[in-house]
Amino acid sequence: MIIGVLGPRGTYTEKAARQWIEKKGLEEDTVLEYCADIQDVFTLLGEGGCDVGVVPLENSIEGAVGVTLDMLMEGDIHIIGETIVTIKHCLLSRGKKEDIRVILSHPQGIGQCRHSLKEHFPDAELRTTGSTSHAAKLSTEFEEMAAIASPETAEMYNLNIIMPDIQDRKHNHTRFVVITRSDDMQTMEGLKEDAADCSYKTSIIVYLDRDRPGALYSILGEFAKNDINLTRIESRPSKRVLGDYVFYIDFEGNIDDTIIKDTIYNIEPQVAMLKMLGSYPKFDSHCESN
């Protein structure tokens, strides 16, 4: 199995992928294919260059990863799993703290450390990169450059840890989803958990296309009356006109459950579009090994 991840070596996405691989017992049967950015993971998957991809979906500090949401909407993608990684950002550099003039990282990494950077490096130039490990790799070139990345990346790229735990909040976690092509049923079936043994989560996208009072309330009411717990709802611009949105909804339950099927059946006539992203084991269920 080939798994597409954000590269180069040492990213949190790689850590998420290896965490999922270990849980599935696939250590001897997988190869990681490193991509330059999140969009490239989706492209590689769509072109058949990998069997599954692992991408970040949301962070406990910075919220949703916009490019992932957009690609889930645009691509023929199915979610088959999720995993959550504890994020511990460090400031890494060849030089010393007083030498630092430029700080590099993925936009999410910079956002998660915004207040710390303002306090300790108010005059430093902030530059975004495709990933935290790419930032670390670039920081090996000049002593005045530093990267926000994981402590493991410091050893990987022979950098000094200038400041540990630089993130603004002590508790920092990122949720990653494991994706495959919707038409790749063999991959999905081979990795499917027994629904009787795991707690499941389902993800959908809905587009209302009706500017009427109570439209979203009516949809959410279908979940409430069936006692279905919503775990996340996120709006994202539809990119059609200003003020027009699609909604990403996660909820507990499996699409094979009768109550979930009935709820989806009742919602579909109320929306212009409903896209099923998939049902998959919850990370915090007892079938997780982490």
Rank of each mutant, 00 (worst) to 15 (best):
A124N: 01
T180W: 07
M156N: 04
S133T: 07
L91I: 06
I179F: 05
F142H: 11
T187D: 06
V85R: 07
I148F: 01
I148S: 00
P164M: 03
S116V: 02
E144S: 07
M185C: 11
Y157H: 14
T83N: 02
L126A: 12
H89I: 07
Q167K: 14
L138D: 08
A146I: 08
S116K: 13
N172H: 12
N160S: 15
D183M: 04
T129K: 05
T129G: 07
L117A: 09
T180F: 06
C113S: 13
G130R: 04
A149C: 14
V102F: 04
T153H: 02
Q108I: 08
E152M: 07
M163S: 06
P151T: 07
A135E: 12
T180A: 14
Q112V: 09
I100N: 11
I166W: 10
A136H: 02
L91F: 03
H134P: 10
G130T: 04
R175H: 09
H134F: 10
T129I: 01
E119G: 06
D184C: 11
G109I: 03
M145P: 06
P107C: 11
E98A: 05
F142C: 08
V85Y: 07
I87H: 01
Q167S: 12
P122H: 00
V85P: 02
M163F: 13
L126W: 11
S93M: 00
K137N: 05
E141T: 14
S131L: 04
T153P: 11
H134V: 12
I87T: 00
H173F: 05
E143M: 12
R169V: 10
R94E: 15
N160C: 04
R127W: 08
G111K: 03
F176Y: 15
D123E: 13
F176V: 01
R127E: 10
E82G: 04
L126R: 14
Q112S: 15
S182Y: 12
Q108V: 04
C90I: 01
Q186F: 13
N160V: 10
L92V: 04
H89S: 15
T180I: 00
S150L: 03
D184P: 09
M185L: 15
L159A: 04
R114M: 14
I87A: 09
H134M: 14
H106V: 03
H120C: 13
D184F: 11
E82F: 00
K170F: 13
R114F: 07
L126E: 13
I100G: 03
D168S: 06
E119V: 09
L138T: 06
Q108R: 10
I100S: 05
T140Y: 06
S116C: 06
T140A: 15
N160G: 01
T153W: 01
P151L: 12
T153N: 00
A135R: 08
C90E: 10
K137S: 13
N172W: 03
G109L: 00
H134L: 15
I100Y: 07
D165Y: 07
S116Y: 12
L92N: 00
N172F: 10
F121H: 05
S93C: 11
Q112E: 15
A149N: 11
D165R: 10
T174M: 06
R94Y: 01
I161H: 06
K137W: 12
S93L: 13
T86C: 02
I161Q: 11
K96H: 12
G111Y: 09
Q108E: 09
G109A: 08
A149I: 07
N158C: 10
D168C: 08
R181A: 04
